[in-house]
Nucleic acid binder design. Structure first.
Length: 112
DNA sequence: CAGTTGACGGCCC
DNA sequence: GGGGCCGCCAACT
């Protein structure tokens, strides 16, 4: 089917473990190119499978949730994150503690 | 049909 | 060290 860039991004996002979050740059990097950050944002915007694509687990580089979220309300995303064990401060999460253990972490080997 | 923007990030100067 | 420009894909106008 369609080996589109979106497909790669979705694959990465779907791999985000519960209780953890990933950044656009991280997903873009894992998808193949770090400059796809924009594509990542749009890919989540399309979100053809919200059930398998937890876009709420994807935050920007600052760890803040997108203000333009439209899945029933921005609070909806925060509620989902907290429900998974991620503490959200205002509209921001502790990237140092909840960012996906991928880059800068030896545990990454356990993921690849 | 064509052009531009869009949930952003990284790299360059 | 700081600021600015560029990069990709798809959808919307």
């Amino acid at each position: 089917m369609a080996k589109s860039t979106f497909d790669l991004i979705y694959d990465v996002v779907k791999q985000i473990p519960k209780g953890n979050v990933a950044t656009y740059g991280q997903v873009a990097s894992l998808a193949g190119n770090r400059r796809w950050s924009r594509v990542v944002g749009y890919a989540l915007h399309a979100n053809p499978d919200p059930e398998n694509i937890p876009c709420h687990r994807v935050v920007n580089r600052l760890g803040e949730v997108s203000a333009a979220f439209a899945f029933g309300g921005e609070n909806r995303q925060i509620a989902l994150l907290e429900s998974e064990g991620v503490i959200v401060e205002g509209n921001r999460v502790n990237l140092e503690k909840y960012q996906w253990n991928c880059i800068g972490n030896p545990d990454y080997e356990n993921w690849v």
